[in-house]
Amino acid sequence: MPSATLLGQALISGVLAGGMYGLLALGLSLSWGLLRLVNLSHFALAFLAAYLTYELGTTYHVAPWWAAAMIVPVMFLIGIAQHWLFDKFKVNELASLLITFSFAVILEVAIQLYWTADYRRFETHYSTMSIKAGPFYIPVLELALCMVAGVLAWGTWLWLRKTYVGKALRAAAEDADIAAAYGVDHKKLAYLLSGMGAAYAAIAGTFIALIATLAPTQIWAWLGVVFAVVIIGRLGNPLGALLAGMLIGASESIAMAVFEPAWAPVVSFSVLIAILLWDPEWL
């Protein structure tokens, strides 16, 4: 039986690692849940942002938060441009999967052309800093990531619930024709939401640059687990996405600490299947 320290530490790192799943899931969940568009290029956009953060940081010595401040607005516009294409070609849910998959592949190739296929690592002095709390260590960067993800998820949740635009978006997601007949211009709102999704990808990307390994193929590394998170967290529910991310992160980590690390990838899907079988009301 593993010691309490080990379990506690595994839980902490798992929950914090899950913050990244949640952050990546956020934008995906919004566009899937509210626009009925499955945006596979979300991961590619996040990695593009990560590479830009890396480039700005290593070549021009721009601090990551300044890099984010530059990249996020650009990504917002990219999201809007992307939606313009969806709109123009009247893309539906299934077609969006195929089209955004192609987007992602094109971005992957572009990234590989510019940054090569080689691994890139953005070394910063705070990348391995941590806070000691009793016998446990809390990595600073992951903690910051979780706080940012928390603020974004909470803020987006409130926005969807409390503002006119948010409610109109949810109404249009449920029945776009009826909402339109009540004056909801969901096309305009969809542009806004697509921009937001891409901006969230950019924020996730900045953290990916700081925390993870950059390689073009890594774009696909997060796909499975983040999809599980989006579904468990309920489509279009930002808080659900974050909590599901942390749940999966924690389960993976505990599985690695108690059983075999190699089981980790199985965990997210086991949790997904278990929850789908259980079929709770909130799903």
Binding site: Y164, K167, R170, A171, E174, D175, I178, A179
Partner: peptide, 18 residues
């Protein structure tokens, strides 16, 4: 009727209010 089932009663009213 086509009310928005996923929205609350109040949200149904305020989401489209002018």
């Amino acid at each position: 009727r086509n009310i928005f089932r996923s929205l609350s009663v109040q949200e149904n009213l305020t989401a489209v209010a002018r």
